[in-house]
Amino acid sequence: MPRLKKSLPHVALLGYLIVVLFPFLFVLFSSVKKDNNAIALNPFGIPKTFEFSNYVEAWVNAKISTYFFNSLYISILSSVVSILLASMFAFAVTRMRQGKWNKILFSLVLIGMLIPNNALMLPIYTIVRKLHILNTHWALIIPYIANAIPFTIIILAAFMRSLPSEIEEAAVMDGLKAPGIFARIIVPLTVPAMVTVFIVNFLGNWNEFLLANYFLSNDELRTLPVGMVQFRDQYQMNYAQMSAGIVYSVVPVIVIYAILQEKIIEGVTAGSVKG
């Protein structure tokens, strides 16, 4: 009886685990099957023969490599710049003594968290076009940077507030000015929080679809999510090849997740729990 009681939660949890993981396995198996027919005849099982040519064709047809590197550099660049700008802002409003301005500016940014950003797509489109950067990677990088700013500021400000004020008092004694305190004292201390925020921003940018879909029209510029949807629409009928495409787009994320999972989970949940 106690044994049964003990294993009951595991049965439920393993059930849930199967629900989560099975779609991945389904796609993985389908990706090495010969064609739709082979998938239809044996949808669940391990494939009898392995057709790796799907992978070759998907790589060529879908230009996964181009999309992949576009996504990678856009996501990294935007995340890094957001953190730089947001940490400067957070430093100023939490550590510099400007009386009420600190509070005013910080509350202003807090409002940003309430705004449903998809609703702002049309005006952002207008801005991007007035800047004459539509159809360049800047059309994504700049909005991505801006989009992440409120969240990044809130997390970094919370972290910086928790640092004892004796730190910069000592630094001021040593003759450091504000930029020096920021660069030499505060930033090194804030690195753990920055890593967390970086991961959150990176994943957000990596997966972003709406802006990437409407702001870029050049095939070479596309990011992975948009490229994948495009690929799906063109090769709709070839599920085996499509599965290979999905595997390509999912594997890097899973690898990153496997390496950094603790950080990622901590990071993604940090914002919401604290907020």
Binding site: L85, A86, G112, L120, P143, I149
Partner: peptide, 16 residues
């Protein structure tokens, strides 16, 4: 310190 983030914020949140 405040201006760069603020400008982007106003451009992409308040102005829209």
């Amino acid at each position: 310190f405040v201006i760069p983030a603020l400008v982007l914020f106003i451009m992409f949140f308040i102005y829209p």
